[in-house]
Amino acid sequence: MQETNKEYGGFLPLELNDTGEYFDNIPSEYISRYNSGTTALIAALKSISAKRLWAPYFYCPLVWQMLREKFTDEYDIVPYYLDENLIPMIDCILTEDDVVIVVNYYGLMDKRMHEWVEGKMNVIIDNAQAFFCEPVIKEGIYNIYSCRKFVGVSDGAYLIAKEQKQLQVEPGSSIDLFGPVYKSVECGTNAVYQESLKCGELLFSETTGMSKLTQAILKNANYQMIIEKRKKNFNLLHEAFHNVQKIPWNMSDGVGYCYPLLLNEDYRRKVIDKQIYVPTLWKELIVPEFEGRVEFRMSKNCLCLPIDQRYDENDMNHIVELVNKIMMEKM
């Protein structure tokens, strides 16, 4: 008789269906699963042989911290500015000695990302805000996806690339990270926000694979529903705000992480006071050094309004009403 480590009896565990992960259509040898987008980025950079690394100023400060701590000996790290359309402003000819990180901001730049990488090598497309962007499967292109902004999980990221060096890491544990996710069901997200921040710091400090629980949940997510709800909510907000929207580029390209409403003033505090919790991407750029640049305006005056699958048309109408009232008070 064949021996097995399978357990029998005891209490019933969490039961989840296996309807497949979103990227099941991608050949398995092109996919690596990690605990965070930062770990996926580390894996991508270790897969590339180059001398100079370009990264945008308009980028997560924790990622910048990681780059400076782990890669200053391997790369000459060069920050770059963005143009008004959030496209890289790199005024030199890129060679095989260069690697460039480009960001699909707000999940609304799918087509422009694909166009920008055309004919280039050693490009990392950071899709942390663009989970549903189709990966570019070609030599020298690395696609990073983070799960937590789109599905209720405690960790999880993908690196999708035709050729990559997988990090030799074990699956991480979600035991110390999952608390805010399940507590939010009974308490609401704001009640466990501080705990969520601490879990995020813990997640960032670890370099592991994706946890088993997260992968099980990702196999159970209703991705079509998520796409449809986010697109519908985005369109409702855009219809309401397009006349005051200061973003100059077409925002209909992708499944949004949020609705980025760029205004002439900073209304974030007043919006948060109305229990519309908008993140600041990124407060470190709201300094005199960046005044007059798009990085400053997007960090200071952009309201990242929620459009995720928790919300429906009534919620969007409520957000519109509150934001309009706040703007009218300033007039």
Rank of each mutant, 00 (worst) to 15 (best):
R268I: 01
R269G: 07
K270I: 02
K270S: 06
K270F: 01
V271Y: 11
V271A: 13
V271L: 10
I272L: 12
I272T: 12
D273F: 01
K274Y: 02
K274C: 10
K274I: 00
K274F: 00
Q275S: 15
I276S: 15
I276K: 14
Y277F: 13
Y277C: 12
V278W: 07
V278A: 12
V278R: 11
P279M: 08
W282E: 12
K283I: 02
K283R: 09
E284A: 08
E284R: 06
E284S: 12
L285M: 09
L285D: 07
I286D: 13
I286W: 06
I286G: 13
I286S: 11
P288W: 00
P288S: 03
P288L: 00
E289D: 13
E289A: 11
F290A: 12
F290W: 03
E291V: 04
E291C: 09
E291N: 10
R293C: 14
R293N: 14
R293Y: 04
R293E: 15
V294M: 13
V294T: 11
V294W: 00
E295P: 08
E295L: 06
F296K: 05
F296S: 10
R297N: 14
R297E: 14
M298H: 10
S299M: 05
S299D: 07
K300D: 15
K300R: 14
K300Y: 04
N301V: 01
N301H: 06
N301G: 05
C302D: 07
L303W: 01
L303F: 02
L303C: 05
